[in-house]
């Protein structure tokens, strides 16, 4: 298959072609899916290099599952978000364990600039990242998937393996907390 023909094919068809040995299908799937996965992973982890490792691992899992892929069930993008989500949770948990182990040690100086400095630099995105990082993991996942990745609530429910009602609740609570954190940052700056 020529790469320019891949636009007419959906992700399911490309996975089938990949499983049948079509290397152009791999390229088309990579160009289509890896930016979505990278965007989500970066928002979840707050670190681009780590997010790239997660995306590579997630795509590898997609390649491996290709021969057994069941077309017409979960959308490949939703499946990939789910894998990325699980890989990110694993990494966040590992980080937390390491942080607990280091509690006894002298605290190193915080390498990240304070919220005030970030806001002074008018870096709204950095402020959003800080605010997102302050959310509990599941609220952060739901908010990022709903409002940044623009997935529907049923799709988020599939990714997170929870009910649609739970997604709605997590998103609403996450947004409330985000609003509070961002408002307090604003007040700090204006004082």
């Amino acid at each position: 298959m020529a790469l320019d023909q891949s636009d007419q094919l959906d992700d399911d068809a490309l996975i089938v072609l990949f499983a049948n040995g079509d290397s152009a299908a791999a390229e088309a799937l990579t160009l289509r899916l890896s930016p979505l996965a990278l965007s989500f992973a970066r928002r979840m982890l707050g670190d681009l290099a780590e997010a790239e490792d997660v995306v590579q691992e997630a795509m590898l899992r997609l390649w491996r599952i290709a021969p057994d892929w069941r077309t017409g069930e979960a959308k490949p993008a939703t499946w990939l978000y789910r894998v990325v989500n699980n890989l990110c949770i694993d990494r966040i948990r590992k980080r937390n364990r390491v942080n607990v182990g280091l509690d006894d040690m002298a605290e190193p100086p915080d390498p990240t600039p304070s919220v005030e400095i970030q806001m002074i630099r008018s870096d709204r995105m950095a402020a959003l990242d800080v605010a997102l990082a302050s959310l509990p993991d599941r609220q952060r996942q739901a908010v990022v998937l709903r409002h940044i990745e623009e997935l529907s609530n049923p799709e988020i429910a599939q990714v997170m393996n929870i009910s649609v009602e739970a997604v709605e609740s997590l998103t609403a609570r996450g947004k409330r907390t985000l609003a509070k954190v961002l408002t307090s940052q604003k007040e700090e700056l204006s004082s």
């Binding site: 990949f18 290397s23 791999a26 390229e27 990579t30 890896s34 995306v55 590579q56 795509m59 590898l60 390649w63 491996r64 290709a66």
Partner: peptide, 8 residues
């Protein structure tokens, strides 16, 4: 990613 795909 491309290298992983080719190996798989």
């Amino acid at each position: 990613i491309a290298s992983d795909a080719a190996m798989t």
